[in-house]
C-alpha cells in the first residue's frame, strides 16, 4: 500500500515537473522572440540611420534615398485620422453610456463595433479604395479616413470603459443642482473620463503607426515633400508602406532596416507612453 502510494505520488510529481517545464520553456520562447526581434532590428537598422536619410527627400539626380517625406506622411495621416476618429468614437461611447435607454440599441452597436474590430486590414483597404479613394482620389486623406474607421472600435471601447468609472453620484449631484443632461456631460462626465479618451488615442496611434495593408491602395506610394494640406490631398507612402516598397520591390534592405528601426523605436515609445499614462491616471484617481 505504502509502495503504491509512493508510486502515485512519484507520477504526480513527474507530470507536474513536465507541465512546469513546459510553462517555463514556452515563456522563455516568448521572451527570447521579443528580445531577439527588437535587438536584431535595432542592431541592423540603427547604423543605417543617418542625418541625410531622415532629413531629405529621395533624389534621382543625386541618387540618394531620403525618408523625410515618409516620416511627414505618417505624421499627417495620424493627425488627420485621430482628428476624425476622436469625436466619432468618443461621441458613440457617450451615447451608449449616457443616452441610450434602449438596451437593444446598445447591444447592436457594441456587437457591430466588435465585428468592426475583427475585420482584417486588407478588407478595409479594399473598401477604403472604393469609397474614400473613389471620392478623394488616392490620397493621404483617403488613407486617414480608412484608418479612422479601423480604429473606431478602439477609441469607443476605451472611452466607454472610463465613462463607466465616473461615479453615478457625480451625475446625480449635478442633476440635483438643476443642470441639463448636456451640461452634466460637458462639465462632469467628459472631464472625468479624459484618461480613457487619451489612452484610446495612444492605442489608436500605435495601431495606425503599424498599419500598412489598408494604406497600400488608399494612400499610395509617392515620396514627395509636402505641407499638411497639400500632403493630405496628394498620394504618399507612410513609413510602413515605404518599408514594404524598399524591402520587397527594390531589395534595398539597408533603408528598410533603417525604417524598421525607426518604427521599432516609435512602437517602444508608444508602449512606454501608454503604460506611463495609465499609471499616472490611476495614481490621480486613487489620490
Amino acid at each position: 500500500m505504502n509502495l503504491e502510494k509512493r508510486r502515485v505520488w512519484g507520477r504526480r510529481q513527474a507530470v507536474a515537473a513536465l507541465l512546469r517545464g513546459a510553462m517555463l520553456l514556452a515563456t522563455a520562447c516568448t521572451c527570447s522572440l521579443a528580445v531577439f526581434i527588437v535587438f536584431y532590428v535595432l542592431a541592423k537598422g540603427l547604423p543605417d540611420i543617418t542625418w541625410g536619410l531622415v532629413s531629405t527627400a529621395p533624389s534621382h539626380i543625386k541618387r540618394t534615398i531620403g525618408i523625410l517625406p515618409d516620416i511627414l506622411n505618417t505624421v499627417y495621416i495620424i493627425v488627420a485620422a485621430v482628428t476624425a476618429v476622436l469625436p466619432i468614437g468618443a461621441g458613440a461611447a457617450v451615447y451608449l453610456t449616457e443616452y441610450a435607454g434602449n438596451k437593444k440599441t446598445v447591444e447592436v452597436i457594441e456587437y457591430v463595433a466588435e465585428t468592426l474590430a475583427g475585420i482584417p486590414s486588407v478588407i478595409y483597404g479594399l473598401v477604403g479604395m472604393l469609397v474614400f479613394s473613389g471620392t478623394f482620389g488616392t490620397s493621404l486623406l483617403a488613407g486617414a479616413l480608412t484608418l479612422a474607421v479601423m480604429n473606431l472600435p478602439t477609441v469607443m471601447r476605451t472611452t466607454q470603459e472610463s465613462l463607466k468609472t465616473v461615479p453615478q453620484s457625480y451625475r446625480e449631484g449635478a442633476f440635483g443642482l438643476g443642470a441639463g443632461k448636456w451640461r452634466v456631460i460637458r462639465t462632469v462626465v467628459l472631464p472625468g473620463c479624459s484618461d480613457g479618451i487619451i489612452t484610446g488615442c495612444i492605442l489608436a496611434v500605435g495601431r495606425m503607426l503599424g498599419e500598412s495593408a489598408a494604406l497600400l491602395f488608399t494612400a499610395g506610394f509617392a515620396h514627395v515633400l509636402n505641407g499638411f494640406f497639400d500632403g493630405l490631398a496628394g498620394s504618399g507612402a507612410t513609413l510602413t508602406v515605404a518599408l514594404y516598397v524598399y524591402a520587397k520591390e527594390r531589395g534595398d534592405f539597408e533603408t528598410a532596416f533603417a525604417i524598421a528601426a525607426i518604427l521599432m523605436g516609435l512602437t517602444l515609445s508608444v508602449n512606454i507612453l501608454s503604460s506611463a499614462v495609465g499609471t499616472f491616471f490611476k495614481a490621480r484617481r486613487e489620490a
Binding site: C31, Y40, T240, L243, Y244, A260, N271
Partner: peptide, 22 residues
C-alpha cells in the same frame, strides 16, 4: 513579460515580414 508581450503586439506587420525575409 507582459510588457514584452505588448511590445510583440505593437510591432508593425511589415517589420515581422522584413525579419522573416532576412
Amino acid at each position: 513579460i507582459i510588457n514584452l508581450v505588448s511590445l510583440l503586439a505593437g510591432i508593425p506587420s511589415v517589420v515581422y515580414g522584413l525579419v522573416g525575409m532576412l
